[in-house]
Amino acid sequence: MFTGLIEEVGHIQRLRQEHGITKLAVKGQQTVSSLVIGDSIAVDGTCLTVTRTAHSLFEADLSEETMARTTLGERHVGDPVNLERPCRPTDRLGGHFVTGHIDGVGSIHEISVTEGTWWFTITYPIALRPLLVEKGSVAVDGISLTVGRLNDRSFGVAVIPHTFHHTTLGNKSAGRRVNLETDLLGKYVVRYLERLGPLTQKMPLTESRLQELGFG
């Protein structure tokens, strides 16, 4: 489990194929120094397992599924990537619950600057629409952000200078694709309501009914 607070920006040092598996090697500093084989680490929001460590490098395997369903399959040697180690039970939860399981890939439609804040407008797969809400949380390349604007095709997030300069967002431009993970708690609510579907046809989901079910 992660929180979406990026600890460090690392750089891809090597990509190689071995028995049908892509081996990804990333160089970092403080984040990498404490890693051991078997640890989890989020790379651009994607949870990976450390398979090898050497000095300031770690290596992880990328399955075909990971390559196809995240942006890691588009990365090249030298590219910067966001790094975050899993949170511990005693850590402050400064962002939100992030699993590292990518829900879909979006695209940066526009970047604008207003009074020292960067606004990123990101298009998203239509399947994610029920899982996005204004003022709700979303992880963009592993970064915990708040949905400030939302329509049926895109959402907007405000990025403060610290986040812009200390994550890969400072290297992004319009047209770049990004990993998206919607809020974990929201997924369970949507799934629960879907399972109530047959019941809600007989008993509509009013505000009072939702309160009876434990919401609100």
Rank of each mutant, 00 (worst) to 15 (best):
L5Q: 02
I6Y: 02
V9W: 09
V9P: 04
H11N: 13
I12H: 03
I12E: 09
R14A: 13
E18G: 04
H19Y: 10
K23F: 03
K27T: 12
Q30Y: 11
T31V: 07
S34H: 09
L35R: 02
I37H: 11
I37W: 07
S40Q: 04
I41W: 01
V43K: 09
C47P: 11
L48Q: 03
R52V: 09
A54D: 13
H55K: 14
S56R: 11
L57V: 03
A60I: 01
R75G: 05
R75C: 11
G78A: 03
G78L: 01
V81S: 14
V81G: 00
L83A: 00
E84R: 10
R92T: 11
G95Q: 07
H96I: 01
F97P: 12
F97Q: 12
G100S: 10
V105N: 00
H109R: 15
W119D: 09
F120N: 05
T121C: 13
I126N: 07
L128T: 05
R129L: 13
P130M: 02
L131C: 10
V133I: 08
G136F: 05
G136I: 01
G136W: 03
A139F: 02
A139Q: 05
V140E: 09
I143L: 04
S144F: 01
L145N: 01
L145S: 03
T146W: 08
L150Q: 05
L150E: 07
L150R: 01
R153T: 14
F155D: 06
A158R: 07
A158W: 02
I160D: 03
P161V: 00
H162I: 06
H165C: 08
L169F: 12
N171P: 05
K172P: 07
N179Q: 01
L180W: 07
D183T: 04
L185G: 08
G186P: 08
V189W: 07
R191M: 12
L196I: 09
P198T: 06
T200H: 12
K202R: 14
K202T: 14
T206C: 08
Q211V: 05
L213W: 06
